[in-house]
Simulated scan of single mutants.
Amino acid sequence: MRIVVFSDSHRRVSNVLKIIERHKNNADLFFFLGDGNDDVDEALTMYPDIKIERVSGNCDFSSVYPASKIIEFGGKRFLITHGHPYYVKHNLYNLEREAKSVKADICLFGHTHIPYIENIDGIRYMNPGSAADGRYGIIDTENSGIMMYHSEV
């Protein structure tokens, strides 16, 4: 199973389109972590059939999406969030508490624009970096385990 994770596109629709185009045939699911939901809406006019879950960021002023949510997919429990409600620019303490509280297997966040992958107390964390800068993340899960890595357009 492959999940493509991106965040913080900030009106760089061209990068969103590149990410989707590259993975539209090999991704089972896309996660968008906020700050560019209008960009995703625009991309979905070209790719209406992709499966995408998303949340709102602090710059998605009129978005109807929540700031975070729990997704069960492929036998894993994901906490996806933009990150600003948990003050991730300062540290991950609040995010870690929330991930543990909801019993997440994988926690995905954006907001900082800095790519990050870590395993903390059995929970895997990923920040894909900023799609505006051409960065995104990939999660491959198989019976043998989970692989998380960063990529660029």
Rank of each mutant, 00 (worst) to 15 (best):
V5Y: 04
V5A: 02
H10D: 09
H10Y: 10
R12W: 05
S14A: 13
V16R: 11
I20E: 00
E21R: 14
R22A: 12
N25S: 14
D28W: 06
F30H: 02
G34T: 09
G34H: 12
G34W: 05
D35K: 03
N37A: 08
E42P: 00
T45K: 15
M46A: 09
D49G: 11
I50E: 00
I50C: 00
V55D: 06
V64Y: 08
P66A: 03
E72A: 06
F73Y: 15
G74E: 11
G74A: 02
G74D: 10
K76W: 10
K76A: 08
L79T: 14
H82C: 08
H84C: 00
P85S: 07
K89N: 03
H90I: 14
L92T: 10
L92H: 08
L95E: 07
L95A: 12
E96F: 13
R97V: 11
S101Y: 14
A104P: 09
I106F: 10
C107V: 09
H111Y: 10
H111M: 03
T112G: 02
Y116A: 00
Y116F: 15
N119S: 11
R124W: 14
N127W: 03
G129I: 03
A132T: 01
D133H: 13
G134A: 05
R135E: 04
G137L: 07
I138V: 15
T141W: 11
N143L: 15
G145M: 08
I146K: 02
M147D: 01
H150L: 04
